[in-house]
Amino acid sequence: MTDIKNIKHKAFLYDATRCIDCRACMIACSVENKIPMDKTRIWVAGVGLKGEYPNLDRASMVYHCMHCEEPDCMSACPVGAYSKREDGPVLYNKDVCIGCRYCMNACPFGVPHFDYNKGLIDGAFIDKCTMCTQRIDVGLEPACVATCPTEALVFGERADLIKEAHARIAAHPDRYIDHVYGETENGGTSYLILSHVPFSELGLPPLTSKPVKEVSEAVMGLTIPFALTWGAVLTGVTVGVHEYNKRKENAAKQTVEAEKESEDAK
């Protein structure tokens, strides 16, 4: 295995069939990042028990930031508080944030968490998974991965993990749904998911390979050309109507004068 520091495109692979819902990842994340348990950056959604004894089935889903290849939060942020690091993590800078919470609305996975209980002085910030940059930069796996007792969460090069995911599906086609969530969803994510129950049951939104931000960015691209054209059109109309009115007035005056003249001539 290559050194984690040298992985060019870091990613997670989560295998729902392996998860035993122990939630050690949540504790590890809290301890590592020194955040209270109720503000944990990981949360686990469970499908709960399904079926009847003895044919029982359950599935749980460990969520944290998907570290999208095309982050919608980053596109939404008006002040550039988000950045996508080249090796994978999507990072948030609280020194820049204005607290508008647009990123929370833009994120299709509902990842950014806002601290609603800070007043004016202590400041209310967004909090989200950082892919444990402090750990991966010294060659360690993120805390959630390191603590996972069943290797439900693994960490590595994105391309390798996609290969690994497809290999697992090929090895046990009966056990998995034949799809790697996050390979193309929302333009690809750095958090890949394998599951034995439909992804919608795990609470994952159905997304196309086009990122959510695409439409709004297309519209935003038109802003400046539109503003310039619109300004020019308005100026043109102002001048045009003014000229037209003037000519009309002049014409009216001329007719009046002409009539006068003709009357005078009579």
Binding site: S75, A76, C77, P78, C97, I98
Partner: peptide, 11 residues
Amino acid sequence: RIVNWQDRSVM
């Protein structure tokens, strides 16, 4: 901070 140029953001 709105002086940061973020022309992709509607906000």
